[in-house]
Design a protein around this nucleic acid. Structure first.
Lengths: 345, 345
DNA sequence: TTTAGCACTCGTTTTAATTGAGTGCTAATA
DNA sequence: TATTAGCACTCAATTAAAACGAGTGCTAAA
């Protein structure tokens, strides 16, 4: 059995209807609302076929059909056409950002908020600090005998500090000599590219105690490795009929409270880099507690350097077309903002 | 009509029963479970009186009685005896903190988590940075022509940085001279005591541009003014029968997502400072969206300097005795930890 | 191949009946 | 006078039965 044009049209109609109604949709509804030029009986027959193909499911004998995960997958891959975000919405988004630019943190916070407002779903924004900037310089400040403060400044105005454990013998001047050298070698390099391996390259140029460098490197990578996570619209879930059973919602809430879990979830999308916007449906995310959910995500970057991710998480019944379009726009807008962030300061 | 001994006993029994059962409690139940030496009929009469006094309410004619806000208030003020936290629980709490001390942030995070685990309610921890430490030194680092980075280090190892807008004419050396002077005058002073007014005191000793100092002060107070807020156990709410109606929960969730709202709520407790642990019941918190909730809170401090607050928020039906005892212990434990934080580093 | 028609299914809604926890009142009792 | 046993009454909650209706699958005719 093949997917002919008519089957596609019917599947599309069913999915679109179900996305807005959240109710199993029957042949009659399709025949009436979407005039496909065939009768309900014909549609009924086609629906039977679509069920055989695994695209539809029936909650019980005398109910309408509901799209299966596979059905959504087919819809996303072959049927759907991303909706261009409307000019009006564009303006809303842009307006939202206009006056909330006081720091990078707030940009991401706003991103999460505005996305959840528009999509009525949970929004996740993940930004790894290491990715968003290039090293400007490193400096040490005193703390006590065996520790110093290491300050790392990037070109985007991000300032990180961390405690640096040092041998008592090392003076602050010693450390700042190291800082100077490191700054010399590393300035202008994206934080994401700074890894422990680089120390080997530098090895020959270093005459003094390598261990001190090693510790500095470790602090450097560690402090910028932090994944910052922003959430929005968590309680939008409670408006969804699929979560009117509180226990189902509880699972998801519990998951969302675990930063690590969420971070892993976002990191685990293998197909993400190839596409503009990636969609994982149902168990494709490989996480049992969100089996009935989908994640739509986009990666934002600068010159091929991945800066972070924006994602929308909700029940599989989701406005894929709209959200995909929105994320695509948002990703570009975010990239634009981050790129021009320095100028606008 | 007066509250005699028997009425008190009956009220206490009803409240305790309701706290665990969440069901309206009837005269029969009281007579059977708590042997007060009188019959159900007598209790019935007393309950009628208690209702007249405003301590009890009846959901409908043929239901048992439920404590009113006023009933809880009387219970908290006159009847309840704070439960000493058990040794076992003490150990759990202490164990929890043992290995999670890597920074102040994590201490508060853990506090929120462990409290919510024990109380099965929402826990809020508010710590104002300004309050938790004394100034150690100030230093400036370069950023660009019209801005510098101001680094503030406190004795507890907290490091704050902020952007300092400077006249182009001011060199980094100029600024660091200022930093030195400020450090000289302010080191050892609790961050909470540093206010814009102090600049007047310093006025006479300052010969150079006062405006530069003023800006530094402003940055200083601003960056340490941030109220950090930690939450725990949000979704414990969903387990409470009073929130099985999702819409009620939604209100509260929405509130909890608004940092400012929550901060204000915690700040608005006027009676808090007088008591060890303060309780606000129902509308005593003056916030309509939590009319059916109570807040139990304790202030933790060091040498009379307020450091922050820990609070438990939940439905008015709450284990007051236990939570009050717990918060009292936790507050002391937290004070202890913060006091010894520096040594253990 | 399409479709009208019809019997059948099964969750949902409606209605009615039953149950039972709890009360208030009264009259007897200590 | 305070207490209590007893009883009629109330009313939400539970259970049972009935009616409904959206939707299907199948068949036979177009």
């Amino acid at each position: 059995m093949e997917m002919d044009e008519r089957k596609k049209k019917i599947l599309q109609a069913i999915i679109q209807d179900y996305i807005t109604s959240a109710e199993p949709v029957g042949s009659r509804t399709i025949a009436r609302k979407y005039n496909l030029g065939v009768s309900a009986a014909t549609i009924r027959n086609e629906m039977f076929d679509l069920e055989m193909l695994g695209f539809l499911e029936q909650p019980h004998t005398s109910a309408g059909r509901v799209p299966s995960a596979r059905g959504y997958r087919f819809y996303v891959d072959c049927l759907l056409q991303p909706t261009e975000i409307s000019n009006e919405e564009k303006k809303i988004v842009q307006g939202w950002f206009q006056d909330k630019m006081s720091d990078v943190d707030q940009i991401f916070q706003s991103t999460a908020k505005v996305l959840s407002r528009i999509t009525h779903n949970v929004t996740l924004v993940m930004a790894s600090r290491q990715m968003t900037s290039k090293l400007k310089y490193i400096r040490f400040l005193p703390l006590d005998d065996h520790r110093a403060i290491m300050i790392v400044v990037t070109d985007t105005g991000q300032i990180e500090n961390c405690i640096y454990s040092k041998p008592v013998s090392a003076t602050l001047d010693d450390l700042n000599l190291i800082a100077e050298k490191l700054t010399h070698y590393l300035s202008g390099i994206p934080m994401s590219d700074i890894s422990m391996q680089m120390i080997d390259k530098l090895h020959e140029s270093i005459v003094d105690d390598v261990e001190l460098y090693r510790v500095a490197f470790r602090s450097l990578t560690k402090s910028f490795h932090k994944q910052q996570l922003y959430k929005g619209g968590t309680m939008e879930l409670l408006n969804k009929p699929e979560f009117k059973d509180v226990d189902k919602a509880k699972n998801l809430f519990t998951l969302l409270e675990e930063q690590d879990m969420v971070a892993n979830l976002l990191m685990s999308d293998e197909g993400a880099h190839n596409k503009k916007v990636s969609v994982r449906i149902g168990d494709e995310a490989n996480l049992s507690s969100i089996n009935d959910c989908s994640i739509i995500e986009a990666t934002f970057s600068d010159d091929n350097v991945v800066l972070g991710k924006i994602a929308v998480l909700g029940p599989t019944r989701m406005e894929y077309a709209k959200i995909i379009g929105l994320l695509d726009f948002m990703k570009q807008h975010l990239q634009y903002i981050l790129e021009h962030y320095h100028d606008n300061q």
